[in-house]
């Protein structure tokens, strides 16, 4: 997650309160999903950006996860996300997201 996005997430947490936030990711693979998710929960694991050492613990989901799918009308989801649901490694992405939320990621 680049520095600009990290800064925006940090700002949003300050302005709206982290308890009012949820981060939805659209990362194309499990590696980037894991690092993005880790950044907004335990802090930037690369220690390069504004969220280094800052554990925001914001709930984070990937758009391919069933929890997200259930919250979106099926026709809209199919129209906007259907193709990515077919082409990306959904299972692997969902697995790393769950691990990050449970605090058992590879970091």
């Amino acid at each position: 997650m680049d520095q600009v996005v990290q800064e925006e997430v940090k700002k949003a947490a300050e302005v709206y309160g982290k308890e009012n936030l949820l981060v939805v990711l659209g990362s194309p693979d499990e590696d980037s999903a894991e690092i993005f998710a880790e950044t907004v929960t335990a802090g930037d694991p690369t220690y390069a950006g504004p969220l280094a050492g800052i554990a925001l613990d914001i709930p984070v989901y990937h758009i391919l996860e069933d929890e997200m799918k259930a919250a979106i009308p099926l026709d809209v989801y199919d129209d906007q996300i259907g193709l990515m649901e077919l082409s990306l490694d959904k299972e692997e992405i969902c697995e790393v997201m769950k691990n990050v939320r449970e605090g058992t990621s590879s970091f």
Partner: peptide, 29 residues
């Protein structure tokens, strides 16, 4: 750099498009 394999991602999307159009089976992606 954490940016993934760009062409592979694009080809998977194209293959998924062919599946959605019933031109190929999912197993043929």
């Amino acid at each position: 750099n954490g940016n993934g394999n760009v062409p592979r991602g694009n080809y998977r999307t194209l293959a998924a498009m062919a599946v959605k159009r019933n031109e190929i089976e999912r197993s043929e992606m």
